[in-house]
């Protein structure tokens, strides 16, 4: 085989691998539709449920892509979501102002994110460890506030009528679309995204060209904070109450979503802003399909095993183009 044929074959394989996450989303979507139809369930409702389950994850994970692009890792985003929602509810209950509540939610989310960023960049602490500490602190503070104020109900809440008008697909789609487009623009059409990819791919080289690491780390954390803020607000729109376990699963699911969407965990030039959206919904679709197919209590364990195997398979295939001789770290 001549070089040109080898190159053509390589390029084709690369193309196929690159579209694999989207193809996986399409396949999973189709399987869900077929499964729901075959079982005689209401498809319209099921799709709405899947969208509701996926939208918060997709929003928070899309913001987190900026952090992951730098090759950093933030495990505190679920706790930040809980903390922001808690502060929002407390604000509304104290002031009765929806506008102020939204402001506080976003302020708390961006504030938490900035604190992580400042601790990491100013004091040179590894980002991951900073976010582990932040996760503990934010969860503990939120739990303290919730349990102190929750009383016999066990949680804190805002009146459901307040956010009910927003609990519809139109609002949520608009919120997701606006946030995603802003992120897409910043990531793909400004120097911020380009420089962050550069920093993630080769930090030493990027710094030597004059790119300020701290500045772009702070921007990344602010973008993630905005995602957390929107995620916290959408959480309250779906259920107007907060308990100590709210958003508990988001933290780790973000990592799964981003990787499932075809983005390398090491960030850099192969980072994709759409990875979180694609991966988040794929993961939710996969879990729902498995729960539809595998019944019974024991089935939850089995469906998690199948989900994990599928996850590893997708990541394996999407990473086929980037194998090195040495073991990856």
């Amino acid at each position: 085989m001549d070089n040109e044929a080898i190159l053509r074959k390589y390029k084709l394989r690369q193309k196929l691998i690159n579209i694999l996450p989207v193809a996986a989303l399409a396949v999973l979507f189709t399987i869900l539709v077929v499964t729901v139809q075959a079982k005689g369930y209401r498809l319209d409702m099921y799709l709405k449920i899947v969208f509701n389950e996926g939208v918060v994850l997709a929003v928070v994970a899309t913001g987190a892509v900026f952090i992951y692009t730098l090759g950093s890792f933030d495990i505190s985003l679920g706790a930040s979501t809980l903390f922001s929602a808690t502060m929002g509810v407390m604000t509304y209950n104290a002031t009765g102002s929806l506008a102020l509540m939204i402001l506080v939610i976003f302020g708390a989310a961006v504030g938490c994110s900035l604190l992580s960023s400042v601790l990491a960049s100013v004091f040179h602490i590894p980002v991951f460890v900073t976010t582990v500490a932040m996760m503990s602190v934010l969860s503990a503070i939120a739990a303290q506030i919730i349990t102190t104020n929750g009383g016999a109900v066990g949680g804190i809440s805002i009146p459901s009528a307040l956010v009910k008008p927003l609990d519809n697909m139109g609002f949520k789609i608009a919120a997701l679309a606006v946030f995603w487009l802003v992120c897409f623009f910043v990531f793909s059409f400004t120097k911020i995204g380009r420089r962050q990819k550069f920093l993630g791919g080769n930090p030493v080289c990027a710094q030597l060209t004059g790119i300020q690491v701290n500045k772009y780390a702070i921007i990344a954390f602010v973008m993630a904070g905005l995602g957390v803020g929107l995620g916290a607000f959408l959480t309250l729109v779906y259920t107007p109450s907060v308990t100590a376990t709210t958003a508990g699963s988001i933290g780790m699911n973000i990592v799964v979503a981003i990787v499932f969407g075809g983005m390398p965990i090491s960030g850099g030039p192969r980072s994709r802003i759409y990875a979180a959206l694609v991966g988040g919904f794929s993961y939710i679709l996969l879990n729902n399909i498995l729960k539809l197919l595998i019944d019974s209590n024991i089935g939850y364990g089995v469906s998690q095993i199948v989900s994990a195997v599928f996850f590893l398979a997708v990541v394996y295939v999407t990473g086929l183009n980037y194998r090195s001789q040495m073991l990856p770290r």
């Binding site: 990592v255 990787v259 095993i305 990541v315």
Partner: peptide, 19 residues
């Protein structure tokens, strides 16, 4: 699989918890 260990460990965690 030669995928980053953090990713492998996510999958393995889910598998072991499931088992």
């Amino acid at each position: 699989l030669r995928i980053p260990p953090i990713i492998t460990s996510l999958g393995v965690t889910l598998i072991y918890e499931g088992v």
